[in-house]
Design a binder for these strands. Structure first.
Ligand SMILES: [Mn+2]
Ligand SMILES: [Mn+2]
Ligand SMILES: [Zn+2]
Ligand SMILES: [Zn+2]
Lengths: 138, 138
DNA sequence: CTATTACTTTAGAATCATTATAAACTATTA
DNA sequence: TAATAGTTTATAATGATTCTAAAGTAATAG
């Protein structure tokens, strides 16, 4: 199956109609090797580069990212910055976070071991373990 | 030395004039046993409760929190949520983060051990190691 | 003290990210 | 092919935060 069909299937199996806009954004986000970390603003700039024929409205980009997140195809990342950051790597993993540039870089889940996990507060359960290594220019 | 003077000294030694507003906010934030995690909106509600005589403007609360952060008396916390969260615990430590209620709870730095720390990307150095245990209702 | 200066507070406006609205459009279904 | 349900879009609305500039207060110099 080619990539176009893969994307269409991914959308359909998430009960999202494979519209032109969603296919374009999904193709950009999901047909890649390396993790992509982004804000909606950044994604909008890339998707709507001036040379691009078919523009996608900002509202649609927000809607689509939200739909992909709800479908489990994107993960929202904890950062400060009052902007939402998204991650195409939806598996549990860790990050370097550059506090000066706000850039994120993945660390494989098994490259860090977290031992002595405390119990969750009563009535709650642990859902994910994330390590953030804050970095800056050395 | 009493608490009033302690606060005044803390402000002065950070080169912040001990104004009525700063003393009130500092007294509320720093004279406590347990860590306090908050957003500016929450702090504003508490500081400006209706029964309170002297109101403090929202702009001043923003200014003051920013000044305290720059002076190192508060730490900004990584969350999603598009609001800034602050922490009166400025030492390195970890958190439970309830993704349903956005509530934070401290975990002592030594209650979790992180082993096998990877090297920082070249040209960068690790500044802090933070573990977030995402929790939800069980 | 008092005057001058520098810093701070404040209301309100401005900005930025995000969400809501509602009309036009398009994919799916009957 | 027609009906329908879902989607896109421009635009307005909202919410958090920052900016502005005028009035107020703390520190300092005389
Ligand atoms: Mn945040
Ligand atoms: Mn955020
Ligand atoms: Zn990642
Ligand atoms: Zn904390």
């Amino acid at each position: 199956m080619n990539q176009k069909n893969k994307i269409t299937n991914k959308l359909r199996s998430s009960k999202l109609r494979p519209t032109k806009q969603r296919r374009k954004i999904a193709d950009f986000l999901f047909n890649r090797e390396k993790t992509f970390h982004f804000t909606v603003e950044e994604l909008n700039k890339i998707i709507n580069k001036k040379d691009n024929l078919q523009k996608i409205s900002l509202a649609t980009i927000y809607n689509t990212i939200d739909a992909f997140k709800k479908a489990g195809h994107l993960k929202e990342i904890l950062t400060n910055n009052n902007k939402s950051y998204y991650d195409t790597n939806i598996s549990s993993h860790h990050h370097f976070f550059d506090i000066e540039t706000n850039e994120l870089e993945d660390i494989n889940y098994n490259d860090i071991k977290v031992v002595n996990l405390p119990h969750a507060p009563k009535g709650k359960k642990i859902q994910d373990v994330e390590v953030t290594l804050t970095v800056k220019k050395s």
